[in-house]
Each structure stands twice: as structure tokens, then as C-alpha cells.
Amino acid sequence: MKIVTVRQLSLAALIVLPFAAHATGTCTNEPKAKWMKERDVTAQFEKEGYQVKRIKAEGTCYEVYALDKNAKRHEMVVNPIDGKPVKEEANE
């Protein structure tokens, strides 16, 4: 059995945590009480022509999973204060 030291765990955290934060991004420092409601974010994206499949809170952001008018899948990290994407990934 291998024993992992505190130093090894600290080094691993320094390497992994920045990547984890980058995956979702930092969207806001505002409390959740000030966030847009999920239904309002959905309505905003539907006005832009998306068919929203799912929204979930992840860290300080919303993650929005939607289809565009060509049925192309989009995964977006969204600022919950203004509903604007901070990161987007489109899949065929």
C-alpha cells in the first residue's frame, strides 16, 4: 500500500484545481439570490432560436444544454447574472 503525503496532495490540487475552474469558468461573485431564474435564462435562449434541453447550476455559473435551429447541440457556460455565455462548445 502506497502512502500519499500531504505535500503530494497539495501539488495535485495545484495542478488539477485550475483546470477544474477553467472547465466551468468563474461567472460571478454575486449570491444566488441575485441570479436570474432558470426559466428566464431559458426564455432568453429560446428568443435567440435555441431549444433548451437542460439548465443546471454549476459552481458560479449555469450550464445550458440546447439545440440550435439546425439541431446542432450546444453546451454553454452562462453568467447567471446577465444570462450571457462565457464559454460555448458546439457538437454535431
Rank of each mutant, 00 (worst) to 15 (best):
G49N: 12
A33N: 12
A43S: 12
L67F: 10
D68H: 06
W35V: 11
D40L: 02
Y65E: 07
Y50M: 09
A57W: 01
V64L: 02
A33C: 04
V52D: 06
W35N: 07
D40Q: 08
I55N: 07
T60L: 12
A33I: 08
K47A: 13
T42F: 01
G49P: 04
K69I: 14
T42P: 01
K53M: 10
K69P: 05
A33H: 11
Y62Q: 03
E46C: 05
Y50P: 05
A57D: 10
G59F: 09
K56W: 00
K56P: 02
A33T: 14
K53T: 03
M36T: 05
K47F: 12
D68A: 14
C61A: 13
K34Q: 14
Y50F: 15
V64G: 00
D68P: 02
Y65I: 05
Y65N: 06
Y62F: 12
L67K: 15
E63C: 07
W35P: 10
F45S: 00
G59L: 13
K69D: 13
E58R: 14
I55F: 14
K56M: 01
Y65A: 02
E63Y: 06
E48D: 14
E38D: 08
I55S: 05
V64S: 00
R54P: 02
R54C: 00
F45N: 00
T42L: 02
E48V: 02
R54G: 01
K56S: 02
D68K: 11
Y65M: 09
M36Y: 04
R39T: 09
Q44A: 15
Y65H: 09
F45Q: 00
K56V: 00
A43P: 02
D68S: 11
K37T: 08
W35L: 14
Q44L: 13
D68C: 08
G59W: 09
Q44G: 10
Y65V: 04
Y62D: 07
R54K: 15
K53L: 11
D40W: 01
A66P: 05
Q44T: 09
K53C: 03
Q51M: 07
W35I: 12
D68N: 15
V52M: 04
G49Q: 14
L67D: 08
Y50Q: 09
V41R: 00
E38W: 02
Q44C: 07
I55P: 13
K56H: 01
R39M: 11
K53N: 09
E48W: 11
E48H: 10
T42A: 01
V52S: 06
R39C: 03
K37R: 10
K69Y: 15
T42Q: 05
T42R: 01
R54A: 06
K69S: 12
Q44F: 06
K37E: 15
L67Q: 07
K69Q: 15
